[in-house]
Structures are given as structure tokens and as C-alpha cells.
Simulated assay, not measured.
Amino acid sequence: MTSPAQNILIIGGGFSGMAAAIQLRKQGLAVEVAEIDPGWRSYGAGISLGGATLRAFKTLGILEQFMAQGSAADGVDLFLPHGQQIAVLPTPRLAGPEIPGGGAIMRPVLAKILADATIASGAKVRLGCTFTALRQHADGVEVTFTDGETRNYDLVIGADGLYSKVREAVLPEASQPQYTGQCVWRAVLPRPAEVERAMMWVGPKIKTGVNPVSRDQMYLFVTEDRADNVQIDPKQFASMLSELLAPFSAPLMQQCRAALNEDSQIVYRPLEQLLVWQPWHSGRVVLIGDTVHATTPHMASGACIGIEDAIVLAEELGSAASVEQALTQFEARRWERCRMVVENSGRLGEIEITGGDKAEHAQIMRDTHMALAAPI
């Protein structure tokens, strides 16, 4: 069936937007991506990825590039702060029998892989450009850009992130991002030989871990409870992160602590979440990814569900008789899965903050992993 939307604009060139461009171009549709950053940059350290994300990479056609430039392995090792191992979390091989069940990669590296695939798809990318007005009419959306140009599209996809301007324009009453009471620290460090897969040390109030992102690098992550969402001077990052690691006497954690200095690549981020109740579209403008379901990293699935949005939206546009039907069916397929990830991740954070039931924490992780293993 011919897609009811032949000419599509994607506002936002992040992971979800690029994935949408790649999948829609496979149908031969005219696709433009408007990205406000003239450098098309991606910030951050490493990103952990589960089997469902690797399965999505396979669908996009970028799994081979990820395997060459990132790191993949089976299982996650869990330890007490002094180093005693307490469990191994299994990670089912969802992307195929030959592909490990999880992995990690540097965010800028993954962004470059997706950007290269977006360009190779034939999508037109407009950098340093975004919209100033969206005017809907019977057959589409008239978009005015910051460069003064005005164009018409059959469909506009808002993929401009947590603080989406598209969401603000078309769903002004939608809920807003909420701070969760936790923050995460990340740092890129040399990878010791013994770090073969994700490893996590669980303390009474602080959780830390490492995950390989390439053959010679890993990223360190530390989750900290912090009642107030306050700015921190980057000059304090190294000393504050070092202090958080002090209670973890495990040799590898102390090795990480010793490696931190003022030149270390450290990222601090307060954790926010967002779940917008459906509908996620208004007329011929639809929202995907963090614009409607931004999650904390507790299930390592934020990028996953955003990329899955793109895949499902492309599938529905390829089979529906109308744009409205495609968007309604897209939302029906995505709601429960995305709600589960956002709410379950948020609940894990609540349990960690309050020192709640560890059995509930473990059960939520198991149930969520099992649900994510199901086809999208």
C-alpha cells in the first residue's frame, strides 16, 4: 500500500528523529530533517543498551556498525560495595543467536552512526534550522522555518526531545518534565582487561557501575539521590564524583576513583521523566521519543523505546489508508510499552531513594526485561 504521507518533515535530529528518517526513506518517501544545532552534535558519555535496542539497530540496518565501534556482551555482574559478587543478571539475545544480549557505546559515536545512515538514506538534512510556525490545513501542514522559508508537508514528526517546542505548539496542555529526586554521574575512563561486560556495585543509597563502550574505553556511572535539582560547577565534578566512590572499597571502584582528575570527561545530569497521555498527535503533527515519554536510565531503555517509535510509525504509515489511521494505530501499539518503561523506571528510582523493598525492585527489573523482549 502507498503511504498516505509522501512528503514528511522531522523536527529534531536526535536518535528518534534519525531513526524515523532512515525507516521512512526505505519506503521511498520524501523526508527532511530539521535540526537546530548547526554542528549536529551529541553530548554525553556512554549509553547502555539492552537486547531490544540491538534488535532495533538490526531493523534500522546499523547493527554491524554498532558491533564494530561499540561493545557487546552477555549478562550484567552485580556486586556489594566491597566487591563480593551477589548475582548475574541474564540478558537474552534478542537481535539474533550470534549477537550478545546487551552492550554500550559512546553517545557521540552512536549519533555519528545514525547520522551517516540518515544521510546515506537520501533524507535531506537542514542543520541550524528549526520551525517558527506550524499551520495545519486539510491536506497537510504549512511550516515556516527560522531561515524564513515556508514549505508544505503531508506529515510533521516532532522528535525534538524532552523540552520539545513542537509539543508546546500542538499539545500546549501536555504534562511537563518532572525531576525525580535522583541524578546520574558519568565519566569516560580507560578499560581494564577484567572489564568484559557491564558490572554494577549496589550500596545502601548509591549505585555505581562500569560498562565497556569500545575495545579500550569504558564508562563509569553513579546514581545519587539529590533532593533538589541544583546546578553544579563543573570544576567540582571530579572531586564530588570521587567522594561518591569513596564508600566502594572494591578494587575496581577504587581504581576508577584514582583515575579521576580535573581533565576527566565527566557528565552530570539530574534525572527527569515525562509521560504524556495520548493522543500524541494533533491533526498531521505527531510526537515521538522523549517528546512524549522521557525515562530515567534505570532500565537502559530510553533510546530503545524512542527508536522503536520510529520503526512502528514507519510501519503504520506504510500500511494505513490515511494519516489519521496510521497515527492512531501507532499510538495504540506504543502506549503500553512506553508507559511501562517510564513508570517502572521511575518506580525503581523511588525504591532506591526510600530504601524500599529490594524484592520489588528485582521483580520490576525482571518483569520489564521480559516485556521488552516481546516483539514491538
Rank of each mutant, 00 (worst) to 15 (best):
P81V: 10
G83Y: 11
L134M: 10
A159Y: 09
R191G: 11
R107W: 08
E196H: 15
S71K: 10
A73N: 10
Q176F: 01
A68W: 11
L155I: 13
L63H: 03
V156Q: 11
A123D: 11
D116Y: 00
E196F: 13
A111S: 11
M200E: 14
A87S: 11
L162M: 15
I105D: 00
L78V: 03
Q65P: 05
H82S: 10
P97W: 00
L162S: 07
Q178V: 14
Q84I: 05
R93P: 05
R126F: 07
R191V: 04
P97A: 15
A73F: 12
P90F: 04
V125D: 05
A117C: 02
A104I: 03
G70T: 05
Q69N: 05
I157Q: 10
P90W: 08
I119C: 06
E173S: 12
V195S: 10
A193V: 13
R197E: 08
Q182C: 05
L63V: 10
G158A: 11
L134G: 01
L78C: 06
G148Y: 06
T118P: 09
W201C: 07
N152Q: 12
W201V: 03
W185K: 08
V141E: 00
E142S: 15
I119F: 10
A117H: 02
C183V: 15
K205V: 13
I99D: 06
G181H: 03
A123W: 04
Y179M: 11
E168W: 07
G209E: 02
A198L: 11
T130D: 12
E64Q: 08
A187G: 12
T180N: 03
S164Q: 12
Q178G: 04
Q182H: 05
G148I: 13
R93K: 15
L155P: 08
A115M: 14
L189C: 08
T180R: 03
R93V: 09
L63W: 05
K207P: 00
L89E: 13
M106R: 05
K165R: 15
V202D: 04
C183L: 15
Y179G: 10
A72Q: 02
I113G: 01
G203M: 07
L127S: 04
L171C: 05
P192M: 07
Y179I: 14
